[in-house]
Amino acid sequence: MAYTIEKSEKGYLLFTITRGNKRNAVDYDVMEGLSKAIHHAADPDVLALVITGEGENAFCSGGDLSVFHLLETEEEAYSMLSKMSKILYSLLTLPIPTIALMNGHAVGGGCEIAIACDFRLARKGIKAGFIQGKQSITTGWGGGTILAEKLPNPLYMKLLMDAEVHKIERLNEIGLIDALYETDPIKECETFLENLLFKDKGVLQSYKQIWIGRWEETKLQERIEKEVRNCARLWENESHHQYVKMFMNKKTNN
């Protein structure tokens, strides 16, 4: 199993990617699991959804290229990208608070998952970055569009264009991370959520609907679709295929 879904007695649902040996990279099983978690998070007794990764090394390293390297054409890539973008849009518009509990490094699609959550709680000392540009593609799960919507500042555009990995403390300073922790991630997350979990669910849903309504009015889903299409076109280019070949050769040699 590539994931676990657990219901806490305190009222939140915990989704954990359990592919520690793959740096918690996303494959089709993880996609299915996240979709299930989002579905279960709609249950009446669930007040929040927390997403994290197994171990301390990685929150999520994005899409698993050892799986997705088989996708070569624009349409093949679009099928995968579109599937995950729809899952992340469902996560974004889930009518309860969502938290990315970043227990380890987050790169590429891992950052897209994190930005689709309402809050980001990260362990001190880790690093994160939208590195897709180094792969000759862009964000393709909607993360770039969501980032621009949530944090409309040229500084965040530079994060995408530079495609570098940054210390989490720096990302906290510029507002990308909401809080840092040092020790027990679950305990720290429950402390972060403490006041929210004692609210009436109707209150949480009402406030969340303010943001959802805005995203619907500005046709965010349509804008995400354009991002997906653009990434799919770049995916087909030879420069991206060369990066994937280099990545796969490196894995084979190691």
Rank of each mutant, 00 (worst) to 15 (best):
E227A: 00
L160P: 13
G129A: 05
E169R: 09
E182C: 08
L49Q: 13
D184F: 12
N249K: 14
K124N: 08
P95I: 00
F59D: 07
H240E: 03
M1G: 11
I131Q: 04
P154H: 11
G104V: 03
L171Q: 03
V228Q: 13
K36L: 05
T252F: 13
E112T: 00
G175I: 04
M102G: 07
N21H: 12
E32L: 14
M248W: 08
L81E: 12
P152F: 04
N230M: 10
G53T: 04
T183C: 09
Y181E: 04
G143N: 09
T52P: 05
Y156M: 06
C117K: 01
K187M: 07
L92E: 13
N253R: 15
G109K: 08
W211C: 01
E216Y: 04
M246L: 15
Y207R: 13
V30K: 07
H166D: 11
G143S: 00
W211I: 01
M157E: 07
L121S: 01
M157N: 07
N253D: 13
N103F: 02
M157P: 06
H241Y: 10
K245V: 05
R223L: 01
E54M: 02
G140M: 14
E238V: 00
L151H: 14
W211M: 03
F68S: 08
N24V: 00
Q221T: 11
G62T: 14
T218Y: 00
G144F: 07
L151I: 10
Y12K: 03
N195F: 09
Y12V: 09
W235N: 10
K199A: 13
H241D: 04
E194D: 08
G109N: 10
Q205G: 12
D27A: 01
M84S: 12
K251P: 13
I174S: 01
K86Q: 11
L81I: 11
A77R: 10
S8P: 08
A128H: 03
L34H: 07
N103V: 15
H39Q: 09
E6Y: 04
L14K: 05
L155V: 00
T218K: 00
G202K: 08
A128K: 00
F130S: 15
A2E: 14
N237C: 06
Q242T: 14
M84N: 13
L147D: 04
F68Y: 08
N103C: 05
A25E: 06
K208S: 02
D118V: 04
M80W: 15
A106W: 08
R170Q: 13
S206Q: 14
P154W: 07
G125Y: 06
M31Q: 07
D162N: 14
K226F: 09
L34E: 03
I96H: 01
L176W: 09
K251M: 15
S35I: 11
K150F: 11
K127A: 06
